[in-house]
Computed example of a mutant assay.
Amino acid sequence: MKKRRILITGSAGFIGYHLANVLLADGYRVQGFDGMTDYYDVALKRRRHAMLLESPNFSAKEGLLEDQREFDNLCDEFRPEIIVHLAAQAGVRYSLENPRAYIDSNIVGTFNVMEAARRLEVDHLLMASTSSVYGANVDMPFKETTKADSQLTIYAATKKANESMAHSYAHLWNIPTTMFRFFTVYGPWGRPDLALFKFVSAILEDRPIDIYNHGDMYRDFTYVGDLVRGIRLLIDTVPKPPENRLVLEGDSISPVAPYRIVNIGNSNKIKLLDFVEAIEEALGKKAIYNYMPMQMGDVPATWADASLLQSLTGYRPETDIRQGIASFVEWYRDYYNIQGIK
């Protein structure tokens, strides 16, 4: 049987790596594309790609999405039937320092991906958004149908722009498109700029950890394995044109396009201090707390309503934070060859 061809942008990234593994196990032919930028340790990215390349059904290309010619050449050669666009300049806090990087990667790069999807007439375009688009909204849990026009950082603004751009292309060119909004993803092979990675590293090295808003912070922590399972199921849940669909209660599907937004979150609001306590438990070591005021552009809480994901796929993320953190700590010790406590 012919293997379906799927292109993943950001394939050397945290989420892209895990998704590629799942798709390879399911028999897909996977083409990766990644810019290998130095926003964080490139060695970690190269190691992820190296492991994926052990599969004969995975190939990888390095390049920036802003380089339209290079990306188009890859797409013309591989001819993907499905595109999962995960590549982006990530990081809420870094967007305060280098906003132009977000315009180049998240706006220009995403436009090039959408143009390729239009030209190739792909079966399904799936693109990553973020819970940050809910911005200053305080009515929680966040629902996909809630108005989201109060973004607080350029990172969030570029992701909301991506949603609007994708909707217009879905409408104009009849491209079945799913946007998924992530909620605080964590787990093995995670990014060094994410809280879990930074906290574990600091605690093991007896350095203080920064606790923003004096600990009065809540997040919907979502284990990476749960997240990519949600994406995998959404790949097969293709939005239909307006004239050929049934609309579920609470569905975010557009009335004028084959376009839908879906939250992927654990639906469980966890206090930051409880998250840290679970890390201490996994490490067998106490943290040194450095209490800080709220950081510019940050929000005190995120919390997903994942009912639509469950209605569409029958699946809801459910990994407990203690289980997920223990898996990360096990990976971290193995990757950095750290012995000792626990």
Results as ranks from 00 to 15, higher is better:
residue 215 G to M: 04
residue 218 Y to D: 13
residue 219 R to P: 02
residue 219 R to W: 11
residue 223 Y to G: 12
residue 227 L to Q: 09
residue 228 V to M: 14
residue 230 G to L: 10
residue 231 I to S: 02
residue 232 R to E: 15
residue 233 L to R: 05
residue 233 L to E: 15
residue 233 L to S: 07
residue 234 L to H: 00
residue 236 D to C: 11
residue 236 D to L: 15
residue 236 D to V: 12
residue 237 T to L: 14
residue 238 V to L: 03
residue 240 K to P: 06
residue 240 K to H: 09
residue 247 V to H: 07
residue 250 G to T: 09
residue 251 D to A: 02
residue 252 S to E: 15
residue 252 S to L: 10
residue 254 S to A: 04
residue 254 S to I: 01
residue 257 A to W: 00
residue 257 A to I: 05
residue 259 Y to A: 02
residue 259 Y to R: 02
residue 259 Y to Q: 11
residue 260 R to A: 13
residue 261 I to P: 01
residue 261 I to C: 14
residue 262 V to W: 09
residue 262 V to P: 04
residue 263 N to V: 07
residue 263 N to F: 08
residue 264 I to C: 06
residue 265 G to I: 00
residue 266 N to M: 14
residue 266 N to A: 10
residue 270 I to S: 06
residue 273 L to H: 05
residue 276 V to I: 05
residue 276 V to P: 04
residue 277 E to F: 08
residue 280 E to K: 01
residue 289 Y to C: 06
residue 290 N to Y: 13
residue 293 P to L: 07
residue 294 M to D: 10
residue 296 M to T: 09
residue 298 D to H: 12
residue 302 T to A: 12
residue 303 W to V: 10
residue 306 A to W: 04
residue 307 S to Y: 01
residue 310 Q to T: 12
residue 311 S to K: 01
residue 311 S to E: 14
residue 314 G to E: 13
